[in-house]
Amino acid sequence: AVTGSQTALLLRAFEKDRFPGIAAREELARETGLPESRIQIWFQNRR
């Protein structure tokens, strides 16, 4: 499950760019500790 702090970080990124590229998703994966594929799905679901 995604924690509150991970969600906050993802929401901030989403406000800046609703369609992040692979580099941005990989950076978010490093920052959150989540797999990049999970980040991609999160953005798809959020849109």
Rank of each mutant, 00 (worst) to 15 (best):
A1S: 12
A1V: 11
A1M: 13
A1E: 14
V2E: 08
V2Y: 13
T3D: 09
T3W: 05
T3C: 10
T3I: 05
G4Y: 06
G4R: 14
G4C: 15
S5I: 13
Q6H: 07
Q6W: 10
Q6R: 05
T7H: 15
T7D: 11
T7G: 08
T7A: 14
T7C: 15
A8S: 09
A8E: 14
A8T: 09
A8V: 10
A8F: 08
A8M: 11
A8W: 08
L9V: 14
L9E: 04
L9A: 12
L9D: 03
L10P: 01
L11A: 07
L11T: 10
L11S: 06
L11R: 07
L11I: 13
L11P: 01
L11N: 10
L11W: 06
R12Y: 06
R12F: 06
R12T: 08
R12D: 08
R12K: 13
A13E: 04
A13Y: 14
A13C: 13
F14W: 12
F14V: 00
F14C: 02
E15G: 06
E15L: 12
E15M: 11
E15R: 09
K16D: 05
K16Y: 08
K16H: 09
K16E: 07
K16S: 07
K16C: 08
K16R: 11
K16P: 01
D17C: 15
D17M: 06
D17P: 00
D17W: 05
D17E: 08
D17L: 04
D17K: 03
R18P: 15
R18Y: 04
R18T: 06
R18M: 14
R18V: 05
F19A: 05
F19I: 05
F19L: 04
F19W: 14
P20M: 03
P20A: 03
P20T: 02
P20S: 02
G21L: 05
G21W: 02
G21R: 04
I22M: 12
I22S: 10
I22N: 08
I22T: 10
I22W: 09
A23G: 08
A23P: 05
A23F: 08
A23V: 10
A23M: 10
A24D: 08
A24P: 02
A24R: 11
A24E: 10
A24I: 09
R25Y: 12
R25V: 15
R25D: 01
R25S: 03
R25P: 01
R25I: 15
E26W: 07
E26P: 01
E26R: 14
E26Y: 08
E27G: 06
E27D: 09
E27N: 08
E27Q: 14
E27S: 10
L28M: 06
L28G: 00
A29H: 03
A29G: 05
A29S: 11
R30H: 06
R30T: 05
R30K: 11
R30V: 07
R30S: 05
E31R: 12
E31C: 11
E31P: 00
E31S: 11
T32L: 09
T32D: 01
T32N: 01
G33P: 00
G33C: 05
G33R: 03
G33A: 03
G33N: 05
G33V: 02
G33S: 03
G33T: 02
L34Y: 03
L34S: 00
P35V: 05
P35K: 06
P35H: 09
P35M: 06
E36M: 13
E36C: 05
E36V: 13
E36N: 05
S37D: 11
S37T: 10
S37F: 13
S37V: 10
S37K: 10
R38Y: 15
R38F: 15
I39R: 00
I39H: 00
I39G: 01
I39E: 02
I39Q: 00
I39M: 01
I39K: 01
Q40H: 12
Q40K: 13
Q40M: 13
Q40A: 13
I41E: 15
I41V: 10
W42A: 00
W42T: 00
F43M: 02
F43C: 00
F43A: 00
F43N: 00
F43T: 00
Q44S: 08
Q44K: 10
Q44D: 11
Q44W: 07
Q44F: 07
Q44I: 09
Q44C: 12
Q44A: 11
Q44N: 08
N45I: 10
N45M: 12
N45R: 09
R46Y: 11
R46G: 03
R46I: 09
R46F: 10
R46T: 10
R47D: 04
R47Y: 04
R47C: 03
R47S: 05
